[in-house]
Amino acid sequence: MAEGTTSTEEAKGFPPFKTETFPSQFFWLAVTFAFLFVMLWKVAGPRIQGVIASRRGAINSDIAAAQKARGDAENASAAYQTALAGARARANAHAEENRQKLNGEIAKAKAAADAEAQAAMSAAQARIDATQVAARGAVAAAAQEAAIAIVARLTGDTVSNAEAAAAVKES
């Protein structure tokens, strides 16, 4: 029992309750605990905190960069859509313009053709009218002659042309 201690007195009793060791225990505890506190507070703590913060920062900035890239892609896509819509609108406008132009030309050509046809029609009408007048004259002359011949055959009288013409006109 007496082994390992300076005196036999110390070996007796329950070692943790030996108050004569307390001053040394308190002293070394105060020194070592204060040392550890200062080291962790001023050196190790900020170091670990710094690493954790820089990792968090790196992750956040990566996420931000990814979000920015996505925004850019979305903007590019939107710009593409706008450009496409613009091009489509311009193409439609061109087509419309061409259609208008062609329609105008068609209308003009049709008007010209109509006018030509109208002219040809009125010329033909004039010819028809002239022929009608001539025919009507010929019919009157024939009727006059026939009337003179009929009167001469029936009565033997000679009727003048003027009388015959008046008679034909009367009938």
Binding site: M39, L40, S54
Partner: peptide
């Protein structure tokens, strides 16, 4: 002394700033 010195050294030098 062993406890606090080794703990302080470990917690200080196990961590390298910027090592993500």
């Amino acid at each position: 002394i062993l406890v606090v010195v080794l703990s302080a050294l470990f917690l200080t030098f196990a961590v390298k700033p910027g090592r993500l």
